[in-house]
Design a binder for these strands. Structure first.
Lengths: 147, 147
DNA sequence: GCAAAATAAATCGCATGCGATATATTTATG
DNA sequence: CATAAATATATCGCATGCGATTTATTTTGC
C-alpha cells in the first residue's frame, strides 16, 4: 500500500469541490454578462432583492464573506447604479446597502438565470437535494467553529 | 407563489458550492503556509508527485485549468525551486514541468495535510463518497460539452 | 513544399477572496 | 466620565481564475 495514497488527486474530496465551483462561475459568466453582473455581485443582489436593504455585516453573514471582499464589490454595484451606500444613523460604524429602482428592475432580467444554470449542472432533483444538504452541513459545522 | 422564488439565496445550489469551496481554501491556507504552497500550487504538486513530469496541457486537463492560470503559477513554483520548466524537444510548442529534488522532498512534508483537511469537513465516510460521486458527475457531464 | 489551420503557451485586464492591519465608532467598565 | 475593549468598515498586498488576444510552432491540405 502506497504511503502517499492520500496525496493522490483522485482521492481528494476538496479538489472536485473546488473544480465544480470554478465550473459554475464559468457557466454563469456569459449569462450574467448580459445583466452586467459578476457572480459575486449576483449573489449580493439576491440578498438585496429579498431584503431590500442590509448592513454590510448582515450581507457578509449571508454570503460568508467579509469586508475585505465586500467593500470593493459594493462600490462597483454603487457605480453601476444598482445600490446606494449610506451610514447607519443609529450606529456610525455600520453602513446600509439598499436597492435603487434600477437595482430592483434588474430582478426582472435575472429571473431566468437560475433555471439556465440548473440545466447546465445535469443532476436529478434527488441528487441536487442531497448535494444541497451535504453542502449546508459542511457550512454549518464550520460556522460553529468560528464562534 | 412568488414568481421570484428561484432567485432566493436559500434556493440556490451553486451558492453553497461556491461557499464551501471558499471555506476549503481558507481551511487549507494555514496548513499549506507551513510548506510554502498555495492551494492551487498544492494540487499542481499533487499531479507532479504522481507523474513526476507533465506538459502544461496535461496539467491543465488534470486540474481543469488553462494557461492563463497556469503559466504564472508554474513560474512561482519554479522560483521556489520545486519544479523545472523546459521546452519539449519533440514539440516546441509544449513545455514540460518536472519535479526537482526539493519538490520531491516536499511530498514528505505534505503527507499529513489531507487527513487534517478531511477532519475539518465533518462528514461521514458515506456522505463523503456520495458527495465525491456527484461532483465528478457534474465535472464529467460538463467536460463532454466542451468538446 | 508551402500557405492556412490548428495547437500550446504567454500575456493582458478585470474581479475576486483572503489574512493582516488600520481607522472610526460604540460599548463596557471602573 | 474617561478610557479600554469591542465592533464595523476600509485598506493593502498577494494569488488566483477567467475571457480575449497574441505569439510560436506544428500539422494539414492542396
Amino acid at each position: 500500500m502506497d504511503k502517499y495514497e492520500a496525496l493522490k488527486l483522485k482521492n481528494q474530496l476538496c479538489f472536485p469541490l473546488y473544480s465544480v465551483s470554478n465550473l459554475i462561475t464559468r457557466n454563469y459568466k456569459p449569462l450574467l454578462d448580459k445583466i452586467d453582473l459578476t457572480y459575486t455581485q449576483y449573489i449580493t443582489m439576491m440578498v438585496l432583492w429579498e431584503r431590500h436593504s442590509v448592513s454590510e455585516k448582515e450581507l457578509g453573514e449571508a454570503l460568508f464573506l467579509k469586508s475585505n471582499t465586500l467593500t470593493l464589490l459594493l462600490q462597483k454595484l454603487k457605480k453601476k447604479g444598482f445600490v446606494t451606500i449610506n451610514k447607519d444613523k443609529r450606529d456610525g460604524r455600520s453602513i446600509i446597502i439598499a436597492l435603487t429602482e434600477q437595482g430592483e428592475a434588474l430582478k426582472e432580467k435575472a429571473v431566468d438565470v437560475p433555471t439556465s444554470i440548473v440545466k447546465s449542472i445535469h443532476l436529478s432533483e434527488e441528487e441536487g437535494m442531497y448535494l444541497y444538504q451535504i453542502l449546508y452541513k459542511i457550512l454549518e459545522a464550520n460556522q460553529n467553529e468560528e464562534l
